[in-house]
């Protein structure tokens, strides 16, 4: 499969969205709304759920499942209030010492007047900073599109997993093509050049695990199994140890030379 085919697969309609994963992996999901500052952003869903005998905080970027809900959810492009809601729920998880599980699926944080005037950059920065230091386990799963800062704002975690056909990139292949090659039609080449597939991510150390895409029930089953062993592992660590592990995880990413 070519890189651009992964991009199209990650964007395909009919692909499972965050709400599918939440309802099939957990039980008793109770959605909690709002950032307590401005509004409730429907591009991000969050709340409490049960996983076995454990209460967890779940947060997902939701693209919507039909035309109407896609519009309603702004196609999974969150505003600052969405990221602030997510952070509020994560801080609450820390307070009650329960793990956070994030599902990431966005073409990017929303680009618009309202998003900018309410501090999109500040909101993403704050999420990254607070997640880096959160004293409770965080697991992020890239389920579709991992679009740049808007994805990273929910993907600073102790473990990052990725579905086989999901993609993760600093810029969309179309954006990259129009800037570098002055031609959005060069997206196929850009997708190749950007190295955005799950295999690439595993090789770079950006993700820890690839979840193979089987029929959906089997995929959910795989994730449930992986989650239960990962949570057992992570819940054995102290808050300080978790923050330390997370810091080290990102600290080593990238390499350089000398003149």
């Amino acid at each position: 499969m070519k890189a651009i085919e992964y991009v199209y697969a990650a964007r395909a309609k009919g692909r499972c969205t965050s709400l599918d994963f939440i309802s099939n992996i957990f039980t008793d999901f109770i959605e909690l709304h709002g950032d307590r500052r401005f509004a409730d952003d429907k591009a991000i869903v969050g709340g409490l759920a049960r996983f076995g005998n454990m209460t967890v905080t779940v947060i997902g970027i939701e693209k919507g499942q039909d035309t109407r809900s896609r519009i309603d959810r702004n196609f999974g492009s969150a505003h600052p209030e969405g990221y602030r809601k997510a952070l509020r729920l994560m801080k609450q998880a820390e307070k009650f010492r329960r793990p956070v599980i994030c599902f990431v699926d966005t073409s990017g944080a929303y680009c618009g007047i309202g998003a900018e005037e309410r501090g999109q950059g500040q909101a993403i920065s704050e999420n990254i900073m607070e997640m880096m230091d959160l004293k409770t386990p965080i697991i992020s799963i890239l389920i579709g599109e991992g679009g740049s800062g808007g994805a990273l704002a929910l993907a600073v975690a102790n473990e990052v997993w990725m579905l086989e056909k999901a993609v993760y990139s600093v810029i969309s292949p179309e954006g990259c093509a129009s800037i570098l090659y002055k031609d959005p039609k060069m997206a196929e080449k850009a997708a190749e050049d950007l190295k955005l597939t799950s295999d690439d991510m595993l090789k770079f150390g950006v993700v820890d695990k690839i979840i193979s895409e089987s029929p959906r029930n089997i995929t959910f089953h795989i994730i449930r199994n992986e989650l239960s062993s990962a949570l057992r592992r992570l819940c054995a660590l102290s808050g300080e140890e978790l923050a330390e592990q997370r810091y080290k995880r990102y600290r080593v990413l990238g390499s350089h030379g000398t003149v």
């Binding site: 900073m129 880096m132 800062g149 600073v156 993760y168 600093v170 955005l196 990413l253």
Partner: peptide, 14 residues
């Protein structure tokens, strides 16, 4: 630098 440039946001903010 692809995804590794994005990861610098997490590294620096940490």
């Amino acid at each position: 630098e692809g995804i590794l440039s994005l990861m610098q946001m997490a590294k620096t903010n940490g």
